[in-house]
Computed example of a mutant assay.
Amino acid sequence: MTSIDASSAPSDDRSALRANCADCFALCCTAFGFQRSIDFPIDKPAGTPCRNLADDFSCSIHESLRPRGFRGCTVFDCFGAGQLVSQELFGGASWRERPDTSAEMFATFSVVRQLQEMRWYLVEAAERAAASDLAANISRLRIVVQRILDGGTSEILACDVESLRDEVRHLLIDVSEEARGGYLAGADAEPDDDLHPSADLAGRELRTRRLCGADLRGAVLIGADLRGADLTGVDLLGADLRGARLDGADLSDTLFLTQMQLNAARGDEATLLPTVLARPGHWTTASHASSPTDGELSP
């Protein structure tokens, strides 16, 4: 096996892992399918264009997606996979120009989206564990992911993405334990037994709970009331935040939070966010619940 020098890890940061729809051939609107649900008013098979897709690859109802029932579209984030596949891996030639490439392009996008998500988490892990014994392994995995992406479509489609996701997930758990250690060591109250990975906290009143440093990885927080809560040091890796109330909450130093999770939640102008994430445009005190965060690294 080729050796990897962990000191040569990519220098990318999370601000570069953002979707740029103008440079994408609407891959999220074509490659993926969806079924009629609270998040989508119609069925759409995978590999087919959405009926709202315009000739220039824009959405013809972009400004009214939520009122028309397409809330799932407003939640999704590709971590920059769309423009990477469209412009770099397929040289700017769209699936409309080259129909013969559509199947390969859509399959590549599905894998690249997962690889880009891993890059997002690994950059944060590197920031949090720069002085840790975990730093070398983080750098190694970042290089592994980047080499797959640099290998082109054949290497991307041949990679064992599930095994790689599992390795990244376990490393993130180790980083989380280190990052949260200070909060746990300083806790002067009895632990909250129901605040644990994969906890079912749907609809729960959590405004008055001690949350700092909690491990809510993969927790179900659908419709939970977190208004005004201090979520400093809380691990939210893969947590389901659909419809969670985050008005006035402090999420500025949560662990492994993504734009998709924020897009799926409800918040307001007083909600404190990490600098690398954007305040969703639909956030108001009367915002409605959004769609799932399917595809994120789960516990």
Rank of each mutant, 00 (worst) to 15 (best):
F57V: 14
T2L: 15
S132T: 03
L241H: 01
P10R: 00
E296Y: 12
Q87I: 12
H282N: 01
N52K: 00
I222T: 15
A158W: 08
S15D: 05
A136H: 09
G218M: 07
L277N: 13
L184D: 09
Q261G: 11
L84W: 08
G238L: 15
N263R: 12
A286R: 12
A187D: 01
R71Q: 09
A26C: 04
P292F: 10
E205L: 14
D200E: 04
N263P: 15
P41V: 00
S58E: 01
F70L: 01
I4V: 14
D193A: 15
P41W: 00
R18G: 01
A189I: 03
T275C: 08
E167S: 14
I38Y: 06
A81L: 01
L273W: 10
I222E: 10
F106G: 02
S132D: 04
I138L: 08
A249Y: 02
S15M: 10
R128F: 14
R227G: 09
D250K: 05
C24H: 04
R279K: 15
F34W: 12
F79M: 10
C212F: 04
D268N: 06
G151W: 13
Q116M: 15
G203Q: 00
D12Q: 01
S132L: 11
V111C: 11
L65T: 07
V75Q: 08
C21I: 05
V112T: 08
L255K: 12
R119A: 11
V220I: 09
R66M: 02
T153E: 03
A136C: 07
R180Q: 12
D100Y: 09
R66C: 03
D200W: 01
S163W: 09
E127A: 09
T258C: 07
L89I: 14
R180E: 09
P45F: 12
F32G: 01
V111Q: 00
L206M: 07
